[in-house]
Structure formats: structure tokens, C-alpha cells
Design a protein around this nucleic acid. Structure first.
Lengths: 408, 408
DNA sequence: ACTAATTTGTTGAGAGCCATTACAAACCAT
DNA sequence: ATGGTTTGTAATGGCTCTCAACAAATTAGT
């Protein structure tokens, strides 16, 4: 059964209890070990400001819950009794990430350290098929992967499903719509065979951005993570938290006006970024809209191939898209002042040809503040981001509240 | 002496102590009384989920610290022993707000309920004069107002100074620059006569936005608060907190590109919003750049006067500025998806003539999400916002951590 | 008017959690 | 081997909440 979900324990009205204090201190200790492992109890105490006695009690509980491992005492070379090295457990609690794309299913299990331990991707044509059928296959894949994880000593504590669509920010497992899959108002629980393992859906772009944020060495606290699949969207990480906007529509980069009197967009407005940097627009500008695409299938791969081969119209098209994207991102930088901009999704695969013009446009537009060209970079995770983010969601929840773990 | 400042007690590394728990519960009780006053101890207990015993203890401490008042028992008509009505104290702790503008000084004392109890505005030409002189006069005004407050039984616990300039987000009392005042790198403590009453500086636009947020009946959690003084800026309230950006440059609305190949801006880019909706641009478009302004002095008042008189060029100029502003705000809405947009500062005074075109532009551009025209509104506080926000800053800090108050 | 019922606020005992202090265990240096 | 140092644990105490009991103050009913 899924233990780790969007529970909101204790926070009903803001009052603090001793359990909350305990919870937070468990998280602080676990976080200290994660950041500086290996650490002894005394090290942790010195670092976080609790006493050795308190840390001992907290560590005992974390070991009991399977979150920490304790190595036997090991000679340190320094005088005094050596400490026993604590490390985040690479067995025990884990997070399962699932992914449903138009052409594939994915699954990933990450241990508490945040390491992906199992990774599975199978090609499937999910676009036209009934949601129930796709979800049944996803569930089968999940069960398979969980069994493999069990063989590694990993016990999945939470399941998150990355979908290319709109997921409201409430519990309930609803996927409002996923155009690429042809889904409308799908409730996962209604189609999932085993009610004990129903995953929680989340938008794949958001998960990609979170993965990028969680995986960074020096985590920037405020990130604009651009990705283009159906439309052009930006996931916003604001001061370390995913920001969805008041109505859940934040980051609609695709409909930022780039040219006030430009061509009419499907949304009704004029000159939206999508008319310049959207997949259809780029294909058209590159002269690849017709037969070439039909033969090839994957538009992004086709563009990358032609650009790599030096196909001039494609290069011009990508340059133009980059300039438009740079213009829209300039607005984002002026408004949000992020630590960095990340190009994810399809843009990551086309980064070689997009980066120069995007950076040039940004350099020309962003002048009233310090702005380093390298603050714009392609995603380090590429298309693996969403699935990794899905698996890490559970891991981060556990790290933030270790009492979610069953005591073993 | 200033008791309430940017102290960061206990939060050094995230560990929770019993004091933190107490602090939070004091704040929760105080907040419940503020939101639903009058309330009895039993009411509070029922509402926040603490026991009557715990609430009693917390209330006793809040009374001791002067934050709550207790009325004698009063017949309620219901069966049972009547409760004693608790209310936020309108005597005792208070916040002082100060304001330095190019042509005036302001001071305001707000009690813990958030009510402004004293309000003072004196005209002064501060633009050319040495900072020390201006600050000495501000300090004198502050002392005067604090004395009056004392006569009302109010004891100022913190002082915040609204300045039209750049204030870094660190303690230290530094005003990096304030072009309208001719200030550069002014440290308040160096010029303030009494070291016990040095205020903490904050950007006036930020304070205006916070005042708007704090004063709203149904507080929207995410607000874009536009104001124009020297440049055009937006203060962003994201999920209830002022967001300054990674480097403190968030909300630079003035340099959002409105027309990619528009006229060159002082910032080096082309077609920035300021070239269309900035004060200088609007005056020029209205044909008021020269003598008329010289005679009048206050550009905003002049524009309002001419527009009110039906002066066609002025009306056209404001209409054009509104369209440009609407275009830039459409980008902000697409990116941030705020609950509402507020026109403050000079825009608030010109709202009658700006609103129609801004709203029209927004309606035409913001189409992929629900967007109500009334979500854009002029500031309810107008130019009183910054000073009120300065006074309320201390009040809100006390509400969030009543242990900042001296006991006794 | 008097009693019963009800609600409020307080009091005392108890539980949970951390701080403090003391101490045994395990290591290095001499 | 002995002393010094550091680690981890155990015992005690303090703080803050919960729980249960009770006195106080009111309404409802007779």
C-alpha cells in the first residue's frame, strides 16, 4: 500500500505539537547525514545544534524506520573513541516513479539517497488507446519493477506518475486532460488494477524541473525550467518550491506575446511565442512540415538530424525560434529574476542550435541587472528528468518527514 | 530601543525546540483572535485544536506581553458560564512607519490590530539636500509621533522606513541608492541621531504591495503590484510572501520588451515598457513634456488634470500607455498566474484613464486560462500604501512571533 | 427560589521531547 | 599500563502540551 502520499498531517491549522518538533528534528538529522555523509552521532549533534543525547534518540528512530544505516566503529586516526559512521540507507525505503508518454512507458525506483536503482523504459503506442488499457500496462510494469526492487531490499513507499498533461493541485488522482494521450478527466484509481498501489499523477514538466532542482550540486533556489512538448511551458521553482500559480496556470510561456501584432495564435491572441518557437512553427519554417516529417515520425529528432547535417533552412528556423524564445525568457528574467534558466524537454535536444541565439537575445535584453550567459543552460537530465523527478518526489517527502515511514 | 527587527531566532539550522513550539502556538492563538475577535479561551481552543488548558496558558502570556486584552465576562444568552471576550490590544505594542519621499516626510503608528492610529505627512523638499539633514528631520518627526503615541498608550516596538530606492535584502540598514533623493550607499545608522531608534529601510513599492496584501478582506495569496515612480516596477507577493528574486531584481516590469524592435531604451535594449508607459514617454506623447510641466511641477497630477479636462492628446497618450502596460502585464499573468493585479503609485491616480485599455489588452491576450477583468484593480490604499506597509511590517512580525514583545 | 444542566476557566497529574550531567566504552599517546 | 580524549548512553530535570477533575458562572426547569 502506498504509505507516502500528500498527507498533510498536523498542519490543519498551524498549531505546533511535540510530534511536529520530533518530526522536524528527525528530518534535520536525516538531512545532515544526507548532505555530509558519513557522519557520527556526535558530528550530527555538533552540526545541527542538538545534543548528542537527542541525536542518539533521533538516530535510533531513523535506524528503526530503515532510513539510516550504521557502520561498525572505524578507526579515524584521531584521538578518542571513534564514532560509528551513519549513512542514508541504500536498502529499505524507496520511491517509485512511473511515466506515461505518447510512445513509451517508464518506471524507476530510487533509494533514499536519491540514487535511481532501477530504470525501465518500454516503447508503446499509448496515444490512441483507452486509458484503462494503458494504465493496466503501466500497473503491470510497476508491479514488475517493484518486485525487482524487493530483490534489492528496496521497499517502495510511494508512487508518482508523470503524465504529459494537466493535473490539478489536489489529492484525488485526477488527470484533467492529456492531449497527447487523448485523456480527459481520467481518475487513476478507477483504472488501476490494485487499489493499494495507485500512483499519484503529476505533470511531467513539473517533475522534470524538480528533478533538475534536486539533482543540482549547488541548488539554485529559483529556476525557470522551460520545456516544449505539446505547448511551450515553464515550470517555476521559486525559493526551492514548485510554484503553480494561483489557478495552476503559472509558467504559460507559450502564450507570452513576442510580437504584439504577430500572426494569430490558436489561443486567440496575436504573436504568442508558440507561433515562433513551437514545434509546428519551427517545422514549417524549416520546410519540414510535410512529407519529411511523415516519414520520420519524431519531429524533434528530425530537426536535430537536419540541423546536425547543416541543413540551412532548419538552422535558420532554429535560430529564429531561439531569438523568439530569448525574447520571452527576457520577460521571465525581468519579472522573476531567477538564479538560472534551464532548457528541458525537446529544447534540451536542440540546445546546440538554440543556445546561441537565445543567449544573444538575453544578453541584449537583460541589461539592468547582472546576468551571466551560463545562467541559461540545457537540462542536465534531458528526457530522463520527469521519471527521475517522479521517483524522487517520494524520496524528498520522506526526507522532509521521516515519520511517514512505517516503523519496522 | 527597537525590539522588533529582522531577528532570525532559532532558525539557524532548522532544528526545532520547545520554544519554537511555544512561539508558534502563541502566534496561532493571537492570529485566531485577530481573525475572529472577540473570542473566548474556549472558542480559541475549539478553533485551533489546542486544549482549553493550553490556550489559557498561552493567553495569559499574551496578556502579560500586552498583545491581548480581556473584557469582563459578558452574558451571551447561551446556557453555561459565559466566556471572557479576548481582543487584540489597542494599547501597548505598536509599529512605527516612516516615509521619505522626494517632496515629503511621513510617519504613522499602527496598533496591533493593524489600525493606523496616528498619521502625519509634512511637505519637504528632500531631493537635493544631504541625507544626514533629511534623516535628522525624519528622526525628529519620528520622536514627535512616538511621543504622541505614548500618550495613547502605544509603545513602538519596531521602526521601518519606506524609501524610494534600492534596499538590499540584508540587515544593516543600507540604502544602496535612491535616485529621486540623490542618495548612494547611505547607512541609516550613520546619520540617525538616536542609535536606539534607527529604522530599518525597505523599498516603498514593496511596502505598498504588502500593505495592499495585508489590508485585503480576502487576501489573495499571489499578487502583482505595479507601481511607477522613477521607473516602472512590480512588487510580487507569491503565496503570501514578498518575493524579491534571486538577486533582488524581481518585478522589473519596466524593461519587459513590449515591441521587439521598438525605440532604444536607456537600458540598452529596445522597446522596453518604459518607452511606452514611463512618465517621460507619456508626457511626451501627451505633448506636455515642456513648459506645461515646468509650471505644474507634479507630472502625475498634471496628467490627471488634463485627462480629467478631456484633453485629447493626453487621453490618447494614456490609452497608449495602458495598452503597452496591458501587454507587459499579459506576460506577467502568463508567467505568474496571480490572483490579481494591482495598479499602485502613479498608476493608481491615473487608473480612471488607464484601466480600460489595460483591461482590454489583457482580455485580448490572456485567453488560455480563466481571467476576470476585475482581477486588475487600482490600489485601494493609493499613495498611503508604503507608509502603512512600513508601520504594519512591525505589527505583522509581532503577530508571527509574539515572543518578540517584552514581557511586563 | 431552588436545583439541575451546561459551559468556562483553572488546577494537578502525566506524557513527550530535549537539555544537562554523569559515566562507561573505545580509541590514541606516552 | 596509564592518562587523556572523544563517543555514545543513561538518569534526571525542565518545558509544553494533553487529559481529567473541579470550581465558577450562567440558563432552564420546577
Amino acid at each position: 500500500m502506498t504509505v507516502v502520499g500528500r498527507t498533510n498531517r498536523g498542519a490543519e491549522n498551524g498549531r505546533a505539537s511535540q510530534q511536529d518538533m520530533r518530526r522536524q528534528n528527525l528530518a534535520v538529522v536525516l538531512g545532515a547525514v544526507r548532505a555530509h555523509s558519513p557522519l557520527s552521532r556526535a558530528d550530527v549533534a555538533g552540526r545541527v545544534g542538538l545534543t548528542r543525547a537527542a541525536v542518539s534518540s533521533l538516530v535510533d528512530e531513523l535506524i528503526e524506520r530503515g532510513a539510516l544505516n550504521e557502520a561498525p566503529a572505524t578507526a579515524s586516526g584521531r584521538v578518542g573513541r571513534p564514532g560509528r559512521a551513519l549513512t542514508i540507507s541504500d536498502r529499505g525505503p524507496a520511491g517509485l516513479g512511473l511515466e506515461i508518454g505518447a510512445t513509451h512507458l517508464g518506471a524507476c525506483v530510487a533509494d533514499l539517497r536519491g540514487e535511481p536503482r532501477l530504470w525501465r523504459r518500454v516503447e508503446r503506442d499509448n496515444a490512441g488507446r483507452p486509458a484503462g488499457q494503458v494504465l493496466a500496462e503501466a500497473a503491470a510494469l510497476a508491479a514488475e519493477v517493484e518486485a525487482e526492487a524487493a530483490a534489492l531490499g528496496l521497499c517502495v513507499q510511494g508512487r508518482v506518475l508523470a503524465v504529459p498533461g494537466v493535473v490539478p493541485n489536489e489529492p484525488g488522482g485526477l488527470v484533467e486532460r492529456a492531449p497527447n494521450l487523448g485523456w480527459h478527466g481520467i481518475r487513476l484509481a478507477h483504472h488501476w488494477p490494485d487499489q493499494n498501489t495507485v500512483p499519484e499523477p503529476e505533470n511531467e514538466a513539473n517533475l522534470g524541473a524538480l528533478a533538475e532542482y534536486w539533482s543540482a550540486e549547488l541548488p539554485a533556489q529559483t529556476i525557470v525550467h522551460v520545456s516544449a512538448e505539446t505547448g511551450i511551458g515553464a515550470a517555476l521553482i521559486i525559493e526551492g518550491r514548485l510554484f503553480r500559480g494561483a489557478r495552476g496556470f503559472a509558467g504559460e510561456l507559450g502564450h507570452i506575446p513576442v510580437q504584439p501584432d504577430g500572426p494569430r495564435c490558436a489561443c486567440g491572441a496575436r504573436g504568442c511565442l508558440e507561433q515562433y518557437a513551437g514545434e509546428a512553427a519551427v517545422l514549417r519554417a524549416a520546410g519540414l512540415a510535410g512529407d519529411a516529417l511523415g516519414q520520420h515520425g519524431d519531429a524533434v529528432a528530425l530537426l536535430a538530424e537536419r540541423a546536425g547535417a547543416g541543413h540551412a533552412p532548419t538552422l535558420r528556423a532554429l535560430d529564429g525560434a531561439g531569438r523568439a524564445l530569448g525574447l520571452a525568457l527576457a520577460s521571465a528574467v525581468e519579472l522573476i529574476d531567477p538564479d538560472c534558466l534551464v532548457l528541458g524537454g525537446a529544447y534540451a535536444e536542440l540546445a546546440d542550435w538554440l543556445l546561441p541565439s537565445v543567449r544573444a537575445e538575453l544578453a541584449a535584453r537583460v541589461t539592468v541587472r547582472p546576468w551571466a550567459s551560463e545562467a541559461l543552460r540545457p537540462s542536465a537530465l534531458g528526457r530522463r528528468g520527469p521519471l527521475l523527478g517522479a521517483a524522487l518526489t517520494t524520496v524528498r517527502r520522506i526526507m522532509a518527514d521521516p515519520t511517514l515511514l512505517p516503523t519496522g
